[in-house]
Structure formats: structure tokens, C-alpha cells
Design a protein around this nucleic acid. Sequence first.
DNA 1: ACCAAAATTGAAACCGATTTCAATTTTTGC
DNA 2: GCAAAAATTGAAATCGGTTTCAATTTTGGT
Lengths: 337, 337
Amino acid sequence: MKLREFAKQLGLSPTTVSRALSGYPEVSEATRARVASEAMRLGYRPDINAVRLKTGRAGAIGVMMARSGEIHFAEFMSGMAQRLETADTDILITPITAHNDDDEMQAYRRLVESRRVDAVIIHSPRPKDPRIELLNSLGLPFLVHGRSETEHVHAWLDIDNENAVRRATEHLLDLGHRRIAMVNGLRGKTYSIHREHGFRIAHQERGFVVDPNLMVCDKFSDESGFRHARSFLESANAPTAIVAGSTMTALGVYRAVRSLGMTVGQDVSVIAHDDVFPYLTAENMAPSLSTTRSSMRAAGTRCAELTLQLIAGRAVDEVHELWPVELILRESTAPPP
Amino acid sequence: MKLREFAKQLGLSPTTVSRALSGYPEVSEATRARVASEAMRLGYRPDINAVRLKTGRAGAIGVMMARSGEIHFAEFMSGMAQRLETADTDILITPITAHNDDDEMQAYRRLVESRRVDAVIIHSPRPKDPRIELLNSLGLPFLVHGRSETEHVHAWLDIDNENAVRRATEHLLDLGHRRIAMVNGLRGKTYSIHREHGFRIAHQERGFVVDPNLMVCDKFSDESGFRHARSFLESANAPTAIVAGSTMTALGVYRAVRSLGMTVGQDVSVIAHDDVFPYLTAENMAPSLSTTRSSMRAAGTRCAELTLQLIAGRAVDEVHELWPVELILRESTAPPP
DNA sequence: ACCAAAATTGAAACCGATTTCAATTTTTGC
DNA sequence: GCAAAAATTGAAATCGGTTTCAATTTTGGT
């Protein structure tokens, strides 16, 4: 049903109907109520494409999705969806050909030029991230989930990775561990750098030295956790504790420890960062896994909210949120044997 | 940059430029080439909202996302994205308030009435799924990922769940197992029903009887795998093999077996369905996990393709694909002790 | 060289809403 | 009771493309 038709049935002009539905103040309460109830009854709803053309709003937030199946993705999206449900705003997924910066840049250009989205959210930035400069120059509002060190001002929401790993490491040091290994995230990402920082600071602060041989970067997966932990534990001077980048990584680490006939929480302590996935709970692992915890879903919800604010015109330099991370101690961390 | 402006710079009419870019045959090759290269150079791209208004196409495929973090979601989406990258079609996520059919129905209505999508993909249907009837009556093209038994004709792509579990079960029976438990997916979903069918058929065919106490339905998660496996294994007449619904479930099952001092692949055999996640590989589990395997990502890619065909007008009753499932035997299945 | 047919281009209508500006009705103040 | 102000409504322009239909140019056959 079109506006013309609908308005005619009500005996009103399209103008009035449009105003009634959009909540303009110039329409009488009686009329508005009638229009609203009739719209519901007859199932009239403005053609979103016409609205967008006229208003210049795309009514959507873009999210770039790397081809490599990001495990966090679903949770984050789900959180976003929760907030956007009532905002009449869609989420637009744009696929990115993996590992190719140029393609991603091109995708952003396309998004802006064709007016497909009002804003985008970008993930896993690097310290000097070319996307940030590009989006700035294109004038498309954007929120960074994570942080960057570029001089271009940008809105961001990040968790306090440095502090999280710092506290986790301090905890291990306080338990008496002196050789601690770290299976970090992807090399070059800001979050990996921050985590490494936290790891180093904790050592320095207590006067210990980090062994570079005990630090490695890789993607978050069961497989990489296993491989690196195994390699650490088999080396000459094996660590007594391991800091893992994610619960998936921790799964692999657990497996590696067991495969060598050792026990997590006795022979080797393990602590990991937990993004809180409904299908894999740190609490339920055996032994239960000590973690630094921050809900990916909550981040998605908040990022959606902040992005809506940016679209509404909130100043970019006001939008910075650093989320503290909980430290939750369970059975997987204990004094060294 | 707008069409008017761009056309003026080329010394052509908007008409010709539009035709050149949309690949109409009436424009000379020379002109088309010039328009295309200038569009690239100057960064002109039609305002997608204007195009959509005029053509009546939304340029997007909708996917309903349940609030409960579906683990398969990201992989499927990623597969879709891969196909749609070159189709100038977006993916639109619509959040659904969990466990509420009415809300979901309302969301579909909204989608159709506001012309937001050209088609939708629905997941995890039930045998009598009200969504299918609704979408049929609304006239919105849709593809079902999974199957339903409703009399309303619909396009679908599904994997052969029945056969997968049947072969998995036959394999266990052939190894000599006589008490086999099954941790199935959510009750009421067609795929769970098909899997149960496969499980029963395998037994019947060889003249064995299924013990209803050894069958349970639940969501796919590490936690549910643990809980049910543990409960099975602690019961009076414990099973010697377990069929798990997903690799996540299998993780929990492994844990349960270990927690009772038993060994997977010796005391208890385990086999699971594997949707192929990049962060959790059946091959790498300890012991490596026997699976029925079918790539969720590939399904996403194919579903996107089929949906595009539906939008292009392909007959709904032609679009039915049943994918066979590989059976991959590894260390987790062996004869009973 | 000429005319019919084919190829190419452009003017203007249109998609379905929003919003400006003007017109009309109602309310208010005295 | 009347003028001025406020509230309410509507006509028409507009967003930025696509597509119909008509006009013009080019090509081909004799």
C-alpha cells in the first residue's frame, strides 16, 4: 500500500499522514491517533527506499566482515542487533576479501559513494590503520571497535586489554611463577600490542625479565593454542604458566598440557581472555579456567548505541570508552609445582 | 557526485550514462567504455536508494538472527558474503527476540511492508513452520536452510541429516556397540527429527532396539554435551558410544568421559556432526574426532546463490537441494571394550 | 546517391516518500 | 464579537536515479 492510497482512505492528504507517522508536532493528537491505528490495521508502512532517497539517510550501519571466520563476530552482531531492533536501523554486512587492504578500501569507497550506510564499525584495528584515514577523508561516520594510534581523531570503544593481561600476569607472578608464556592474538593488531604491553609491564614492575622466546602471536583457535603450548612445554626451559588469548586458544593449551601427561592447575597454570560465548564456558572447563572477562555481546550493543549517537551528530572526540575487564580466578591457576 | 553533474562533465545526457553503466545494449561500445572509465576516475556511483526506489528492488537479502548466539551463524554469513560480494546485494540482519514467534512474524511483516529486502533466508525450521506460511502469503521470496514438512511449497537447501546420523550409527553398531546414546539438537527442529530418524533406522535395520532413555535434545554447547554425557555414563546401564550433535557438544562429551576416568576411543566411542569451524577442528581433538562433515560456509555460499536465483524469478519448486554428508572416521570410534 | 532500417542519443515522466510554503481553520485576548 | 495568533491541513517541489518514447544519426542495400 502506498501513501497516496492510504491517505485517500483516511480522507487526509499525504502530507498530514506522513507527518502523523513521523511524529511531527503540527498534527492534532486526534488525527495522529487515527492515522496510527489505521496504519496498523491496514498494514501501511512507508517504502523504506523512498524515505531514504528523500531524507538522505541510508538507515543502516555497515560492518566489515573478514572472510576468515571470526569467532567473535556472531556475538558482537547479536549484541548490535539487540540495540538496533528498536532503532529502525539495519545492519549491513560487507564481505572483505581476506588479507587485502586495497580491496577493503575499495569496499568502503563503494559503501560511501552509493550511500548504502550512515556509518560503519571497524574491527581489530592496527596502530596505524589506513581505514581510519580513509574513512575520515570520505566523511563517513565510523566507530572503531578497538583502538588505533593514528593522529586522526576517531570514535572508539575498547576493552582495557593492557590492564587485563597485566593483572592476569601479576596474579601468576604473585603465585610464584617465574617463567610465563603468552599465546597472543594476531601480530600487528592493536589489541595484541596492548596485551603484550600489559604482560611486559607486570614483569618489569616486579623486577622480572620477559623471555622473548615465550611470546608468540597467532590467530585464536584451538589448533594454534595446542601447537604453541606444546612447543613451549617441550622446550628446554619450559614455562610453568601460560597466558592464552581466548578460550578457544585455552582449549588447545589444555589439550597440549594433557598430551604431555601434565595437569592444568597443578603442573601448569593457564589463564585466558574470555569474550563470553554461550557455547563454551570457562567455568565449565576441566579444570575451570581462570579468565579476564568482557562480554563481546555487550560491546556490540554499546557500539551500536554509540554509532547511532555519531549518526545523530555527536562529536567524534567525545566518543571514547575504555571498558575495564574483570579478573576471575578459578582452578586453572595455582602456585607452580 | 550526482548523475546530472557526472553526465554534464562527460557531455552526455543522464539517460545515456545510466544506460552505459547498467549495461543496456543501445549504447555504443565507445561511449560505454568512456563512461565506465570516467566513472571509475571520478568516483561516480549511483545513489543506491534512488536506484532502489525506481527499480523496486531492495538490493538486499534478509537473514533473521535469533538472539541466542547461534554458533553456526558467522560461518554461514561469511559464506553468503563470499557469493554476494560481486552481486551488488547486501545482507540485512534482522534481530529476532528469542523464543517469540509473534515477534518474528511481525518482523517479517515489517520487512515486506517497508520493502527492505528482496528475499529472506530462514534457518532451523520446524516441520510445521508458521514462518513458511506467512512468507508464502506475503509473497516474499524465501529460501529455507533446512527443511519443513508443511504443505506450502518452498525452496530449500538442507544437508542429509538422516543419512549422516544413520551412517554414523551403523558404523558404531558395526563396531559392536549395542548401547548408543545420542545428544541431539533442539527439540522440534526438523534437523533434530531427521537425525533421530537416522538413529532409529540404523538400529531397526539391524534388528536392534533404541533405548529412549539414551536420547536427549538440547542446544549445541560444550556445557550441554558434558551434562548429558555425564548423566548417561553414570546411569545403571551406561552406553558404550555417544552420537553428538556438534563438535561443541563433543567437547563436552570428551570432558565428561575424562572426568569419569575413562578414555574416548577406548572405553567410550564418540562421533559428532561437524559444521567445519576454523577455530575448532575435529582432526585436532585428542583423540581426533570421527565426524559426519558438511561445511556451513559452503552452505551459506550456495544459499546466497539460490536466493539470487529465486529473486531472478526461478521457480520455487525447482529449488531443492539435499547435500550428502561425508563420514570421516578417526580415533574416537573403536570397538567397545 | 538515396531511402529504409538500425543504431544511438536525449527529454520528460516516474518511483514514493518528505518538507517547504501557503492556505485554512481554530483558539485566544480584550 | 473581532482581530491577531496559533494550530492544523494541503499543494507542489524535491530527492536521484531509470525507462518510455520520440528524435536524431549512422549504416546498408541497390
